[in-house]
Amino acid sequence: MGHAAVLSLLPILVVFDAIEARAESCPTAKDELATDRPDVTNSSLVVPTGSLQNENGVNLTARDGGRTIDGTNTRWRLGVAPCLELLIDLPSYVGSLRAPATPGFTDVAPAVKWQVSPFPGKFDLSIVVGAALPTGAVDIAGRGTQPYVQLPWSYELQGGWGVSGMLTEFFRPEESTARHVTEATFVLEKKLNEKFSVFTEYVGDYAQSAGPTQLINSGGLYHLSPKDQVDFHVAFGLNRNSPSYIVGVGYSFRIDDLFGSHSTRETSRQF
Rank of each mutant, 00 (worst) to 15 (best):
T68G: 13
L157V: 14
T74D: 02
A132I: 00
V163C: 12
D70E: 15
R269K: 15
D139N: 13
L167T: 11
T41A: 11
I88G: 02
E169N: 11
A131Y: 00
G250T: 03
S154C: 12
E85W: 01
K122C: 01
P91L: 09
V181L: 10
Y202T: 09
N54I: 15
A62S: 14
G250H: 00
S252V: 07
G104H: 02
S252N: 12
M1T: 14
V15I: 14
T35D: 06
S263D: 15
H3A: 15
V249N: 03
G2C: 12
F196H: 08
A81V: 00
S43G: 10
A5W: 04
M166R: 07
S261C: 02
V46D: 00
F196T: 13
V112L: 10
A101V: 01
P11G: 04
P38W: 10
E174S: 12
L52H: 03
G260L: 08
V14H: 06
L9Q: 08
L188P: 05
V181E: 00
G50R: 00
S43K: 04
W153N: 09
N239W: 07
S242L: 10
I255C: 04
A207N: 05
T35E: 08
K30A: 13
V14G: 02
Y222E: 08
A132M: 05
P11N: 08
N217C: 06
F199D: 00
A29G: 06
A34L: 05
P226K: 14
P103H: 04
E175R: 12
V129A: 13
T106H: 04
R37A: 08
D107E: 03
S252A: 14
V247T: 07
V230S: 05
Q229R: 07
V6T: 13
E189K: 15
L221E: 07
Y93K: 05
D31T: 05
Y222I: 09
P100H: 10
V47F: 02
Y222V: 08
F123Q: 02
T145R: 15
I19W: 07
G57R: 00
S44A: 15
E183P: 05
K113V: 03
